[in-house]
């Protein structure tokens, strides 16, 4: 992936750039809004990471300028502000996702990947019939089978599984699940995500069989049939 990082704090920008490069991505860094806009229009990027507060031109203005130039590259906006209102404002300006500082790098990486996949294969999320290994997910009939065996899921479990299988192979973080499945913009103390995941896993996996839904410790969850 070719990624543009527009962040005025040089250390933060370097950490992000280093981490993304180590994950095999090409990264350009820009430290102010104006330069960011020039780079964004000159080069075709797969994803742009833009800080909300930038010198010369704010992140919101930068995203608006980029969008008015018909550049539809997915944008992840970073911000030190975290109130609900700011989030809404950021998304309304044309950003595709919003991440509050401070964040775990894995969270950033997971979101960048998710944005890229959504932009690269927009139809995938609409598929109604998904096979992952011996798991068959049939949204149309709302039926899930594993190796031909029917699995009964509660509506909550079905919703969770649907979210995961549509993003197969991708790391899904706790925060992403909280946000998108339960509408939580705060982090509850109770491990509600873990409890849901372990119930779903108990139903999906057969004793002795290969686990389909894996926990990446400190990262999140991934559903895949690969090893």
């Amino acid at each position: 992936m070719k990624i543009l990082v527009v962040e005025d704090d040089v250390q933060t920008a370097n950490f992000i750039a280093r981490g993304l490069s180590q994950s095999g991505h090409t990264v350009d860094v820009s430290t102010d809004g104006e330069d960011g806009l020039i780079q964004a229009t000159r080069t075709a990027y797969d994803v742009m990471i833009i800080d909300r507060m930038l010198p010369k031109c704010s992140g919101l203005e930068l995203v608006q300028a980029v969008r008015s130039g018909h550049i539809n590259t997915p944008v992840l906006m970073l911000t030190a502000l975290s109130s609900v209102d700011d989030r809404v404002e950021g998304l309304e300006s044309g950003a595709d996702d919003y991440l509050a500082k401070p964040f775990a790098f894995t969270e950033l990486l997971a979101r960048v990947r998710a944005l890229h996949r959504r932009a690269a294969a927009p139809g995938e999320e609409l598929a109604n019939d998904i096979h992952i290994g011996d798991l068959h997910f049939d949204l149309y009939r709302r039926r899930v089978t594993r190796a031909g065996r029917r699995i009964d899921l509660t509506p909550q479990e079905f919703k969770l599984l649907e979210y995961l299988v549509r993003r197969r192979g991708e790391t899904i973080t706790r925060a992403m699940l909280l946000e998108n499945l339960w509408g939580y913009d705060f982090d509850p103390r109770t491990n509600i995500v873990e409890a849901h995941i372990s119930r779903l896993r108990a139903k999906l996996d057969v004793p002795g069989g290969r686990p389909l839904l894996r926990t990446l410790r400190g990262f999140g969850y991934v559903i895949d049939d690969a090893d």
Binding site: Q156, E194, H196
Partner: peptide, 30 residues
């Protein structure tokens, strides 16, 4: 933010029973 009135209430119509149902659904396994 809530106390100082900085967080503006969105003023939407909220069905408390629906919200309770969603929250309970989220918490039930835990």
């Amino acid at each position: 933010r809530v106390e100082s009135g900085e967080a503006r209430l969105s003023g939407e119509t909220v069905n408390l029973a629906d919200v309770a149902r969603e929250v309970i659904d989220a918490y039930l396994p835990s």
